[in-house]
């Protein structure tokens, strides 16, 4: 755990931080909330709750540091504490297995699902979004953080409270699973994937 250095801000400063460092990330936050909960109303509640918490804890935020990563971390924690319990999604994924597979020699010999770039060109509707939403929430999360939000390994590790090695193995598996889903779509659209 890092030491939290408490800052002292006047109301005016708090307001400035909130408006200029926190609020500009609202669209990303809302999308992240939606991708986690898969429900627009839950996403709204989650984002609202996150901003409220961010404001309450504003003195543990150091001005000019990575506000986006800080906000994402609060949102992710709120999701785990308040939402994940409600959704009785049995945890089907053995993350230990994901990681040991990633660190084994087998990973280089894995079979890449047959999918051609051509087939992707026809996925102009919701196919990709549905495929992403169909992944287990932890896999969905790393794809969002990396591909949409452009976070670095280190930032993702902090947001998710997992080691960098786990970030890497999870991302690798997530990409693989996404590819499998898209390959199924391509097949259903009549593409012969060879």
């Amino acid at each position: 755990m890092e030491d939290v250095v408490r800052q002292h801000y006047t109301d005016k400063e708090k307001r400035e931080i909130f408006d200029h460092e926190f609020l500009p990330h609202i669209n990303s936050m809302y999308n992240f909330g939606y991708r986690l909960t898969l429900d627009r109303d839950d996403a709204k509640d989650l984002v609202q709750d996150t901003y409220f918490k961010a404001f309450r804890f504003i003195e543990s935020f150091q001005r000019g540091t990575n506000a986006k990563a800080w906000l994402f971390r609060i949102l992710k924690n709120s999701f785990i504490n308040d939402y994940r319990k409600k959704i009785k999604e049995p945890n089907k994924v053995d993350y230990q297995e994901v990681e040991s597979y990633y660190n084994s020699e087998d990973v280089d010999r894995q079979i890449t699902p047959d999918l051609r770039v051509d087939a992707l060109k026809d996925m102009i509707g919701d196919e990709i979004s549905n495929a992403l939403n169909a992944l287990d929430v932890d896999f969905r999360t790393v794809i969002i953080l990396c591909d949409l939000e452009g976070f670095k390994y280190e930032e993702m590790a902090k947001i998710l409270d997992i080691p960098i090695g786990t970030v890497r193995s999870r991302l690798h598996r997530a990409r693989q699973l996404l590819k499998e889903k898209l390959s199924e779509y391509a097949k259903s659209m009549g593409y012969k994937n060879t």
Binding site: L23, I26, N27, Y30, V47, Q48, I143
Partner: peptide
């Protein structure tokens, strides 16, 4: 893989947060 990544970027970005949410906050 890059084509998939680009597709994710264009299709899953979610657009803008609802204005009423911003107002509430």
């Amino acid at each position: 893989d890059m084509a998939i990544k680009e597709l994710v970027q264009t299709k899953c970005c979610g657009g803008e947060a609802p204005t009423e949410l911003v107002r509430t906050i």
